[in-house]
Simulated scan of single mutants.
Amino acid sequence: MKLIKYSFVFLIINFGALALGNWLMTNGPKESWYLNLNKAPWTPPGWVFGVAWFTIMVCYSIYMAYLYKLLPDAKTIFLFIIQFILNVSWNYVFFNKHLVGMGFIIILLLTFLIGLFLFTYIKPLKNSSLLILPYFIWLLIASSLNGYILYNN
């Protein structure tokens, strides 16, 4: 029962983060600034981002529920809060303020943090660690997209 309750709480928080990030980026992906950037050839179409983030946040919420059930300590919550801040702030920094370099630093820090979750807790979580893989893989792709924009514009 605790797992379901924790999953529900993390779903609300994580989808709240997506909503907040979306609000903070304003209309960024549709603005001429973004549309005129030299983007990576492997940049997916816009709809893929929504599908990817929906899937990632469902998996990550369940992952966090497993982790918090196993380790309900300050370190777990602290790392989660840092992840939340980095995730939300990237949208604002990149799309709203057009700070591509700062966005790249933020996304690299976020990727490192999600990798830290993955590799630090893989032994105690065992197969449940697979739930964070979509987030980690997506961040590797997103980092490459941000890096390409930084280097080529």
Rank of each mutant, 00 (worst) to 15 (best):
S32C: 02
Y6F: 13
F84I: 00
F49G: 00
F117E: 13
G103H: 14
Y92P: 01
Y135L: 02
T55S: 14
L79H: 12
M1E: 12
L70A: 04
T111C: 06
V48Y: 14
P72K: 05
I122A: 03
L37V: 08
P134S: 08
F15H: 10
Y6N: 10
I82M: 11
Y121L: 02
F78N: 03
L145I: 05
K39L: 05
S129H: 08
G101V: 01
I81F: 09
G21I: 07
F112H: 03
Y60T: 04
V88A: 01
T76H: 13
K30G: 04
I62N: 04
L37D: 11
N96R: 14
G50H: 10
K97A: 02
Y6I: 00
L79M: 14
F112G: 04
G147K: 09
M64T: 04
W90I: 00
L35F: 05
P124K: 09
G147V: 03
L67V: 02
T55W: 15
M64C: 04
F94R: 03
L113V: 12
Y34Q: 03
L18Y: 11
F112S: 04
G16Y: 15
W33G: 00
W53M: 01
M1N: 09
L145E: 11
E31H: 08
L139N: 13
I106N: 09
F49C: 00
T120V: 06
V48G: 00
P124G: 02
Y68G: 00
N146K: 05
Q83S: 12
L86N: 09
Y148E: 08
A142P: 06
F104W: 13
I137V: 15
M1I: 03
V58D: 07
I105P: 05
N14T: 05
F10T: 02
W138T: 00
I105E: 09
G103N: 11
K126V: 03
P45Q: 13
L113I: 11
L20F: 08
Y66K: 06
L139Q: 11
L86P: 09
A65S: 08
L99W: 15
I56D: 10
L11D: 09
L37I: 05
L133F: 13
N153I: 06
K126P: 08
F94H: 02
L86H: 11
I62F: 14
A74Y: 15
N153D: 14
Y68L: 01
L133I: 13
D73Y: 13
I141C: 05
N36R: 09
L150V: 03
N27G: 02
I105F: 14
V9N: 08
Y151L: 07
K5G: 00
V88G: 01
F49Q: 07
L79P: 04
T76C: 10
Y135D: 10
G46C: 00
M57T: 06
Y151D: 01
L20C: 02
M25F: 08
F49S: 00
Y63E: 09
V48R: 07
S144T: 13
F80D: 04
L140F: 14
T111N: 13
G16I: 09
D73M: 03
K30R: 12
N22M: 08
M102R: 07
F49P: 03
L108M: 11
F136R: 03
V51C: 02
L133P: 01
P41T: 04
K75Y: 15
G115V: 09
F95V: 01
V88N: 08
